[in-house]
Amino acid sequence: MELTAATTVRKPATEVYAFWRDLENLATFMTHLEQVRVTGERTSHWVAGAPFGEDVEWDAEIVDEVPGGRIAWRSIGNADVPNAGTVRFVPAPDGVSTEVHVVLVYDIPGGAVGKAVAKYFGEEPHQQLDDDLRRFKQVLETGEVVRSDGAPWGKRARKEFPQRPAQPLSDAELAKGAEP
C-alpha cells in the first residue's frame, strides 16, 4: 500500500527538515507511532502503538538524504510490516514556506498483524497521513498539537467520531487521558 500526502509549513526548509531529521520527533505527531529511538548515525528503532497490533517494532535506516531537501528511509531486518518512506522539502512559491511531500509504502502481511494494520487504515487510508501532517504543521507553527474539549488527546484522538462532548474535562478524565 502506498500513501502520499502534502502540507505547507510556514517555516524555512532547513528548520522543517531538521525537525523531521530528528526522527524521535515523528512520534509527537504520527498517530500510529509510540516511539522512535535513534540508534546510530543512520539507524533507528521504531515502536508502533496498539492500532498497528500489539508489539510491532522494527529497525530502520536512512537510505538517502539531502540536507534541507530530502530524507528517505526503509525498515531493515525482519520487520513485521516492512515499510519505507520518503519526505521531500520544497521551498513554496511564497518565499517563506516549505512544501512537505510524503510518500509511505507498507508491505502489509497476512495474519493478525496484517489485519490490525488494514483495520487501522480503514476505508480512507490517506486520511491518517493527512491528519499526521496537520499535526506536524501544528507542532512546527504553533509549538504543540492543538487540543479541544471535544478532541482533547492530541494525536491519540484516533477515532474522530464519536468524540466526547465539547465541555471541560473532569479531573478523573484528565488523569485517565494523561496515561500513555
Partner: peptide
C-alpha cells in the same frame, strides 16, 4: 502563525481546529 493568520484570514486559521479532517 499560519499563512491564513499572516494574511489576516483568522476564521480560516489552518492550525486551530483539531477536527480539521
Amino acid at each position: 502563525a499560519c499563512a491564513a493568520c499572516a494574511a489576516e484570514l483568522y476564521s480560516c486559521c489552518e492550525n486551530s481546529n483539531p477536527n480539521a479532517g
